[in-house]
């Protein structure tokens, strides 16, 4: 079972959360996106039990939600005229 994609996804997701906590939002956004891409690959191409798929999809939804918020925040920040 090529679990390396799953492991990669998990690594990326935990790095994303770390960067998020450190307020490196650009990096966190990039890592969340990469993590979801790997998770999606695993769900689509690597046979997992339905239960595992459901929980991976739920994780993706969470990360995507967070990534969208970061993206909004970064866009707003960019627009904000330099103080």
């Amino acid at each position: 079972m090529a679990n390396n994609n799953l492991q990669k996804a998990i690594d990326l997701a935990s790095k994303a959360a770390q960067e998020d906590k450190n307020q490196n939002y650009e990096e966190a956004l990039r890592l969340y996106q990469a993590a979801v891409q790997y998770f999606l690959h695993v769900v689509k191409y690597e046979a997992q039990g339905d239960k595992a798929k459901q929980s991976i999809r739920a994780k993706c939804a969470e990360y995507l939600d967070r990534a969208e918020k970061l993206k909004e925040y970064l866009k707003k920040k960019e627009k904000a005229p330099p103080a």
Binding site: L40, A58, A67
Partner: peptide, 23 residues
């Protein structure tokens, strides 16, 4: 309360991912 757990579909994930990537 809207059950958050209604799991998202692969297509929906893919769509959101694309939306994110597009600047």
């Amino acid at each position: 309360s809207s059950s958050k757990q209604a799991t998202i579909s692969d297509d929906e994930i893919e769509r959101q991912l694309r939306a994110l990537g597009v600047d």
